[in-house]
Design a protein around this nucleic acid. Structure first.
Lengths: 339, 339
DNA sequence: AATCTTATTGACAACGTTGTCACAAAGGTA
DNA sequence: TACCTTTGTGACAACGTTGTCAATAAGATT
């Protein structure tokens, strides 16, 4: 490994001068700089992170702690967004996956500490409140896609209420009145928020919200639920007074509704309009007709979380803003206007 | 930050003794160990990675360089698999995403070097040959889901030929004879290999392979292809002598074939059997009927890649094995036996 | 009793970098 | 000429850890 000392010797200057050049310190004569830079390139010198870290007491890594986010198709974009933002100032992402194991989580907090991470993003798979233990970590922590029960931590979350509103509003504007809803688990905060948004849309359109048209499409424990949207859709669609549109808690549920419609010989969107959530490309862009859905802005959430980690260092103790990222409606082909 | 020195002072021993205890060195009296361990726990001491790295010249991080793998639903399991194996000896994963940009890739190689990564896994989104530049990195490099054009690097790849064989063999065993095929881009190595496997299966069953039943289902550049499986499926299924089964290059294509079948009023698997590839859960487990498919063992590929990184350090220069990971058939409900 | 092992511990240097301080040379001002 | 400022450079220490080697104490062997 080439060191400052070796470059310095070769260039005939002191290591401090080389250090200055590497770090873009202005106080170096131009010709010295150029000469040394040549040697640096030629010898392929790369500054040793370990030594830098040790000397400066800080690193250029940001940690990403997740229950499963980095490992599930739903929200990998958080990672992409975080990286995009990190890249801008040459920082690095270390990722840790707890699979929900608290012991593992504790170990990873120590790991982040050992690596002198400048901050940690704590991302959850579902938008929900998250009570973090005692993270044994004294730098910036920003929650992504979740928020602390105690409200004492900065967090970046999707605007689920707005998303729910957008879903219902769009269908209502298209003229639908009998709108069925197949929700995610009620244990997820998002479910409550979106319901609130939908009801607001119904109210604004002067349409009565019918509670018996609302079903839960995913049952069981959070991480390993069973998707029952197919059965729910079947039962709703076989009634004589069936809904003309179905709002789904995510695109996976929507896919099952497509299957149910196909099974019953209903064509989409002619006989039934279907609205998803998430904009999970492999489903939303692939289905025919392509799925109209509301995008979960994971990329932006990840990006924003990193931005907040950077910000956090300048802030004082109690800093705990809750940033809402909008969920835009993505109109494709699965919803039609009623005449 | 608590240091060895502080613990040593508090415990009334030398820093070296504490160091020994932290590292599980046997040569410490039991009672000393216990006493010091108490202090360590109480003071919440965590060894400084930077200092360790600097002293030992090696870190405990493994790099993961990808074009897009960590960011696409298809293959995030590589990350999970890698982490699972890494966790066993408390190693850490640093991930780098190049989005296919060579300049960025060069920068990340330097970054890995700066972090003294013990090895790097170079993962590609599609199983294909990959000509790596001059990676400016002198430790273990293992390719995952791709292999070097020059054949000079260790790699872990899925057994696509076996997978193709499994797809065809299963349908042939079920009695299908007119089997349509909708492939991925011919630019992907996997496409060639699977085709070979399928033809072997046809041969073994004494069935003639009909080339006009094979269509390409994804066209355009590798990273941003257009999925046209829907149209391909429609055209194949509208012919009078339509195939009784369709083999797809992946589950996304299969999803479009489901849509095409629904559009034509064909029921699956009654009128048409559909076989996928990848076992992308959001599709394969969600569809009704659930998709029979061949699993792409990404988790195992990631895990194995890490194992090979560890192995690599013991090996000599030219070490470049090509490890094949089997692709198991996952039987669900989308294929039926012909009477 | 003298010597040799073995077990346990500590002093010290070194890893590669950067912050602090100092010094020399050059230029400007009185 | 004497003094001050600015510019460019280098010597040295320190960050926290571990490897090397030495020192001590305790026990075993002759």
């Amino acid at each position: 490994m080439v060191t400052l000392r070796e470059v310095a010797e070769r260039a005939g200057v002191s290591i401090k001068t080389v250090s200055r050049i590497v770090n873009g310190d202005a106080a170096v004569k131009a010709e010295t700089r150029d000469a040394v830079l040549l040697h640096i390139k030629e010898m392929n010198y790369v500054p040793d992170q370990a030594a830098r870290m040790m000397r400066s007491g800080t690193s250029n890594v940001v940690g990403l702690m997740t229950d499963a986010v980095a490992t599930t198709p739903y929200s990998v974009d958080i990672v992409r967004g975080a990286q995009a933002e990190l890249k801008r100032d040459h920082k690095t992402l270390i990722i840790a996956n707890t699979d929900g194991d608290p012991a593992l989580e504790a170990e990873y907090w120590r790991m982040f500490r050992a690596h002198k991470a400048v901050g940690v993003i704590y991302a959850a798979m579902f938008h929900r409140s998250q009570s973090m233990g005692h993270p044994d970590f004294n730098k910036a922590v920003v929650l992504a896609n979740c928020f602390s029960k105690e409200g004492d931590r900065a967090s970046v979350i999707p605007d689920d209420e707005g998303g729910g509103y957008a879903q219902a509003d769009y269908l209502l504007k298209l003229g639908h009145r009998r709108i069925g809803i197949i929700t995610l688990s009620p244990m997820i905060e998002a479910t409550t928020l979106r319901g609130r948004g939908m009801r607001r849309a119904f109210r604004e359109h002067g349409v009565t919200f019918e509670y018996d048209l609302e079903k839960v499409g995913a049952v069981g424990p959070l991480m390993g639920e069973t998707v029952v949207a197919y059965d729910m859709a079947l039962s709703m669609l076989m009634k004589k007074n069936r809904p003309t549109a179905l709002i789904c808690g995510n695109d996976v549920l929507a896919l099952q509704v497509f299957s149910a419609a196909a099974h019953l010989g209903l064509s989409v969107p002619q006989d039934l309009s279907i609205m998803g959530f998430d904009d999970l490309k492999v489903i939303s862009e692939t289905l025919r007709p392509a799925l109209t859905t509301v995008a979960l802005p994971y990329f932006e959430i990840g990006r924003m979380a990193v931005e907040m980690v950077k910000l956090a260092s300048d802030e004082k103790e109690g800093w705990a803003p809750k940033v809402l990222v909008p969920c835009p409606l993505v109109i494709r082909e699965s919803c039609r206007a009623l005449v």
